[in-house]
Each structure stands twice: as structure tokens, then as C-alpha cells.
Design a protein around this nucleic acid. Structure first.
Lengths: 349, 349
DNA sequence: TTGAAAGCGCTAACAA
DNA sequence: TTGTTAGCGCTTTCAA
């Protein structure tokens, strides 16, 4: 029924091992027999059984993907399809396949990872999230199993290959941009502090202020726990301050969309009344009203480098630990404006 | 180094096959030895090698996922993360793993599918898209390989297990809703006609009009090829008609966001000047300005039923072909309003 | 350059 | 209820 290497060998009049060599494109085989074998494979419609191959060769040519908990609303974020594309591209280039794990809780995810690692289904793993205390990370480290992290490790940075943006700098630049436009009252809206990316971006925000001698105020820093309801409240409070911000840096486009909404309900116009710089530059940023000035963090590249470097790690034991920093750039659209002191002056006259 | 079934057998003083039976949780084994074996496994930290198991048992307990071309902008659509969650949940419940394929072109995708099917990496396949002439579908059919399609097959409907919404009815209801609000000039904005879902939704739109004795006008039907630029133009043309529509049905939330944008640029207010009903009800619909009235098509359930039924198909040869219709419901928000004939009257006076 | 043969780690008859 | 014994389809020494 199924055609095996033996069938091919018989038809080509060679030994099974020869066929195997042809498949592996071994150099020490004559062009002649190589062709003979290829013809036979063609004729029989032969396809190698990857399970058998994996078993014998102890390698799978597939990389495992660890997604964030599917309970996370963040899962809906267009960030994920985009990294996935990048990862997929990097994998395809080296003929690696992709194996996915998900789960509703951290516990389920860890179990799924163990299953796929111990079950020898994958040669390496890409982690799509880095939480503060990540059990998956510690598991992989103690097993010395190859993995790369997208984002920044919470600890042991020097020992974990990861691909990340320079989020501190990126956010500093975004904030600087607003400062240059004349803004002084700039608020920060980010996600949960459990995500390292949030911490980094907040850092950058604070750095920019400090450098410009603008005091960092606690009431100007907001962490939206939920993408939606939570955010509304926070933005309202922010705008209800005696001295409301004239500009906002938001750590994610998706969040920014929610912010935009709330502002609209409050009758606050963007950018006329308030400026916004957001992050990630997904398609959404372009489609928002107004189109958002956003920091492009090159999501695709993040994924691409992750799988590419994971494969290097898998194929070469000696590969050094790496830290890959993907470039970013501010994409200007219509959500920011100069703080028009002239106009304010005029109004006062 | 690696602990195998033999090591466990030796430690537990039984035969390897006995260990294998314990793993499979065979009923005909004494509680006593079962426990003995389990202890041994625990003690040695044993984990079955899935490749070996797959090879011997000729089954993989994993299902393959065929994603749409990563070139598609549609890939960015939040639809995908959400179906993925559903698929993943259905798979986890039965302890199936997920194997992904993607590709930049139809050709690459087909190759990837062949590789994973012939390579015996998966027991069945879920197709996330149904194009008009789908090579993947024909390939799987001729190989008699189990698969289920999310969406509606282009042909041989009776012979392909698929899970879909009743898109015709759903769109008819959406259109009826607008008609009941007094609208007569209703335009349709959909994606490429290559997607069967577009065709169905357009059908439902036309049916609703016909039933209400409203003529179907060609200039009221628009197919946006691209999510962004293309759409802008189309919407402009639509609104430039001598008799512009007073309401829009849009086949996708993401698209609707773009439409909303263009309308805003044109100074047309929603819902005051024009009403919009959109489709899919992803998070975006809620976050748009104004929040979109959208038809919830239960994306998660689409995925969940797909993997659940695929597994049934895989585990039972005799499983009949099925057509699963997932329910939908109109979620009212703020993008529609009654066509105020009174006001129009007033304006005329 | 090629072949013979011994596994890879597991499952599944068939026996006992 | 348990053990024996062939494989599953491939890779990879080792020998020729």
C-alpha cells in the first residue's frame, strides 16, 4: 500500500541505504545511481515517512511555538498573526515545520510544552511571550532544550537567546517627539506590569521626561489591566485631573484604539485637544480615526529572526547565546500636533 | 541517556509490552502491575517518544492546520486568532496536537500540505479558507485524507464535511434590519468574489432587497479587492452617486473600519447620515467609532466544531459527511439609525 | 561508491 | 493478565 524506501530500492536495483543517501543528497554517490533512484521514486510516487526518519535520526525538522494563554484578550492582538508570519517564513526557508501549543492557563501551557519536548516532537521552541516568572523558561533551561524568546527575559538575560526591540529607547524617542512638539504634560498608558515590554516602555517614557527636566508624575501613569472596560475608566480619570495631559503615549495600537474611543465620548478631539503616539504600527494604526502616529517595531522581523536563530541554535550546539535587537521607527500620521502656545495666547487676549 | 520503555519494564519487572499497555491504559491489566509500572515510570522520569509511537501505531494524534496565504492582508484579520483558539480548544479536549502550515502562495501552501500529509505528520486537516478552486481540497479528496473545511466548499458540498454559518440568511437578516429601519438605498461592500463567504453574503443581501421589492442596483454593489486603498476609492464612488445609499452592509468588521474612515474624510456622519451593519463582531466592532452594529458569527465555535468533528472523522472511518451550521446573531450598537423621513421632509419645506 | 545489518522506541499480533 | 516477537520505515555504522 504505502510505498517505502525498500520498494524504491528494489525498483532501482540498489540497497535501501543507497536510497536513503539519495534522499539526504549525500555527496558520495554517483550521478548515475542518483538519477536511477530518483526515477524510481518518481515512478512510485514515493514520499518519506517523517516519523520513521525522525525516530532514526533523532531530529524532527520542526520547531515548536508557544503561544500566550488563549484566555488573554491580547491573543486577539494583530501582533500574533504578524509574528507568526515572520516565524513561518524563517522556518520555511530552512524547511522546518511548525508545531503549535496553546492552553487556557499557564499550567496547561507548561504541560503542552513538556509533552511536545519530551515527546521529541520538536527540535527547538520559540516563546511568543515573556512573563515575569515564566515556568516554561525555567523548564526549558533546566532541560537545556534550545529555545529563543521573543521579547526580553526577566532574568539571566545573558544566557537566553532572545529577539527584542530596544523598547526603552523606542519609547524614549516617542516621548521625545512629543516633547519636541512642545508637550510637557505627557501621560503613559500601558498594559500589565507583568509583561516586560510594558516595564521597558515605561522606563523609556520616564527617561525622556527626566532628560527634559519634566517631573514624572504618578497620576500620569496608567496600567490598563483589560483592553476595554478597564481602560475607559483609567482614561476618564486621567482627563479629569486638574491638570490633564496634553499628550499621551500608549504602549499598543489596540489599546490606543480604545483610548481614542473614550476620548471621543468625552468630547476631546485628537490631535486638536490631545496628541497621541502609539506603538506597534499594526494595520489598525493606519485605519484609526485619526490615523495614529505609531512606533513601528517590525513585528514580522521579530518573528523571522526568532525562527532563523532558533534553527541555528538547533543545528549547532556551539552557537553562542545571542541578543538580537530589531530596529524601530516612528511613523508619523495625524494623531499629534504641536502644542500651540500661540493659539492659547491668542485665546487669552 | 534517554529512558525508554525497556528501562521502565526492567525496573518494574515486566515486559515492554506491558508497559505499553499501561501507557495506552488498556483495561486488561491488573491494578497491581499498573501501579508498579506507573511507579517505575515516575521514578525514571519516563516520557514516551511520540515519533516511535507514531511510527508503530500509524497515527499521530495531531491535526494539521492550513492557513490562508500569508500574503493576504486578510491574514491580519482578528478572525484567525479567534478560530485558532476554537480549534485549539477542540483539539486539546481530545489530546490532539496542532501542526501548522503556511505559505506565501497557493503553490507553497499545497506543497506544505502534501509534505505533512504524505510525511504522515498528521491524522487529519482543518482548512481555514475555502477558495473557489482549491487545489488543497482536490488533493485531500483524491487521497481520501480526512479533513474539514471552515466555510463552504465551492463544489461537492454534500461530500465535504464543513462548518459554516448560514451566511445567506445572516446577511439577509442584517439587510432586513436596515429595511425595517426605513432604508431603501442600501449598498453592499464585500471582499473578493473568490471567497465563497462573499458570494453568500451578497446573495443574502440581494434576497432581502428582492423580498422587499427594492431593486438591486449594480452600482450599489462593491467588492474591495484590498482592505485599504482599494476600498477608499470604492466608497468615494459610492457616495458620489446621484442617489447615494443611506445604509451600508459591510461583509467584515475590518473592512467596515476602513469604510468608517473614508466616510469620515468625506464628512459623512455615522449613523446620522448613513447607517452601517457589519459582520463578524470581532473586538474591533466594539472599539470602532461609532461602535458597529455587527453580526456575530461565533468564530470561536466555528473553530471548535471544526477540530472536534475532524477528530471524529479521523477516529471513525464510517463517520458520515456533515454540514455544521453555526448560529449567528445581530449585535446592535450605535452605527444604525432609523431613516428619518420626517427630517428629510422638514429640510424640503 | 555501494551494500548488509543493526538499531531508533514503540505497538500489536499471537502465545502462553 | 502478561510475555514473546515481529515489525513500523528510516538512518547509519561498518565492511566490501
Amino acid at each position: 500500500m504505502t510505498v517505502t524506501i525498500k520498494d524504491v530500492a528494489r525498483l532501482a536495483n540498489v540497497a535501501p541505504s543507497t536510497v536513503s543517501r539519495v534522499i539526504a543528497d549525500s555527496p558520495r554517490i554517483s550521478e548515475e545511481t542518483k538519477q536511477k533512484v530518483k526515477d524510481a521514486m518518481e515512478q512510485l510516487g514515493y514520499h518519506p515517512n517523517l516519523n520513521a526518519r525522525n525516530l532514526a535520526s533523532k531530529s524532527t525538522q520542526t520547531i515548536g511555538l508557544v503561544m500566550p494563554s488563549s484566555k488573554d484578550v491580547g491573543f486577539q492582538n494583530p501582533f500574533f498573526p504578524t509574528v507568526l508570519q515572520g516565524i513561518s517564513e524563517g522556518a520555511q526557508e530552512k524547511n522546518y515545520a511548525l508545531h503549535m501549543t496553546t492552553g487556557k492557563s499557564e499550567k496547561e501551557i507548561l504541560e503542552a510544552v513538556i509533552h511536545m519536548v519530551q515527546g521529541r516532537r520538536v527540535d527547538g521552541v520559540v516563546l511568543l511571550t515573556s512573563r515575569v516568572e515564566d515556568q516554561v523558561v525555567s523548564y526549558l533551561r533546566t532541560r537545556k532544550f534550545p529555545f529563543v524568546l521573543i521579547g526580553k527575559p526577566y532574568k539571566d538575560i545573558e544566557e537566553i537567546t532572545h529577539v527584542d526591540n530596544d523598547n526603552v529607547r523606542a519609547m524614549k524617542e516617542a516621548t521625545d517627539y512629543l516633547i519636541q512638539l512642545g508637550h510637557q504634560q505627557i501621560a503613559f498608558i500601558g498594559g500589565t506590569k507583568e509583561l516586560i515590554v510594558t516595564v521597558d516602555r515605561q522606563d523609556g517614557y520616564e527617561k525622556a521626561l527626566q532628560e527634559a527636566d519634566i517631573p514624572v508624575k504618578g497620576e500620569y501613569i496608567v496600567h490598563e489591566e483589560f483592553l476595554r472596560e478597564g481602560g475607559q475608566e483609567a482614561v476618564r480619570e486621567l482627563m479629569a485631573l486638574k491638570k490633564p495631559p496634553t499628550a499621551l503615549v500608549v504602549a499598543d495600537d489596540f489599546m490606543a484604539l480604545g483610548v481614542l474611543n473614550t476620548l471621543d465620548e468625552l468630547g476631546i478631539r485628537v490631535p486638536d485637544d490631545i496628541s497621541i503616539v502609539s506603538f506597534n504600527n499594526v494595520l489598525l494604526a493606519e485605519m484609526a480615526k485619526p490615523p495614529l502616529t505609531s512606533v513601528d517595531i517590525n513585528i514580522f522581523e521579530l518573528g523571522y529572526q526568532a525562527s532563523k536563530n532558533l534553527i541555528q541554535l538547533v543545528e549547532n550546539e556551539k552557537e553562542p547565546t545571542k541578543r538580537l535587537i530589531i530596529s524601530h521607527r516612528l511613523v508619523e500620521r495625524s494623531s499629534c500636533t504641536e502644542l500651540n502656545t500661540a493659539r492659547i495666547g491668542k485665546d487669552l487676549i
